[in-house]
Amino acid sequence: MIPSPETLPRFHFISGLPRSGSTLLAAILRQNPRFHAGMASPVGSLFTAMLNQVSAGSEWGPVVTTEQRRRLLRGVFESYYADQTDKTVIFDTSRLWCSKLPALLDLFPDAKVIACVRNVGWIMDSIERLYRADPFENTRLFIDDAERNTVYSRVETLAQRNRLVGFAWSALKEAFYGEQAGSLLVVDYELLAQAPQRVLPLIYRFVGEPEFEHDFQNVCYEAPDFDSALGMRGLHTVRPEVGMRTRATILPPDLFEQYAQLSFWTDLGRSRANVISAKSEAGQASQARPQNT
């Protein structure tokens, strides 16, 4: 039986940069019994594969109408989450979604995308730490020895436009300056980790849901099987207590500085995106910046 629109959950999306708090945010949101949220799902890959099969270049493209494509693609979401019968809101996570805003908002006009961000230098530092923590494993993030030889080759590989960090950064930049930016909320990792009690109410307001009292001292999430298959243990492990740990970077200074300059989301004057920013003098969360300001 096809569910009626009245019984379908509302869909929102978590996207943005890797190692920037998307798993942490999902772990917090899933405390709300009305919500489903988790690490990256296969829905984004299924969405792309389906679209490839019914678009130009495929033998089936000429015989599938645009409306049929919409139904097929929406059906990917509805079928994958069909067992979440007790949830009224689904947050699907994928770095792909920032590059698919026109399609997402056509399928789900009221959907919002929450993009987690972080200083790219610290993103590279975080991935490099995980790599060095398991020196007897060749992670699948790198194809061959030429890519994994040194910290310079590893970081440069990750930054390529079709790789882990470079793709996510490019997709987010497209969404941030695009015509659908009003449906995007950018959340800085450090602010989320330091002041979750201030950030979460703003997120609830953005997605139009009643607030929920979260327990930021008991946040748990891990996916050891997935991380082991990727060859990078701890990639999706969330510590129980939300907070920041101060440390020095393990990257060479020139490499860290090169990537620390890439925070385009601070350019608020040329985007309609909503941004939860921190007051530099107090480190406190401000309200999501209204659109068109």
Rank of each mutant, 00 (worst) to 15 (best):
M1Q: 14
S4G: 15
R30N: 13
R34D: 15
H36G: 03
H36S: 11
S41L: 06
P42H: 05
V43Q: 05
T48C: 13
T48R: 12
V54A: 00
G57M: 03
P62W: 12
Q68H: 15
R70L: 13
V76G: 13
E78F: 12
Q84D: 14
F91Y: 04
P102A: 05
A103P: 11
A111C: 06
I114G: 12
V117Q: 05
N119Q: 10
I123K: 03
S126W: 00
D134E: 08
P135D: 07
E137F: 05
T139I: 00
L141P: 14
L141M: 11
E147T: 04
V151Y: 04
E156C: 11
L164W: 09
G166C: 02
F167P: 10
A168V: 01
A171H: 09
L172A: 08
Q180A: 13
E190M: 01
R198E: 15
V199I: 03
I203A: 05
F212A: 04
H214P: 07
D227H: 05
R233E: 12
T237G: 12
R239T: 11
M244S: 14
T246D: 11
T246Y: 12
P253F: 07
L255G: 08
Y259N: 00
F264V: 03
D267E: 14
V275W: 10
A285R: 00
R289F: 14
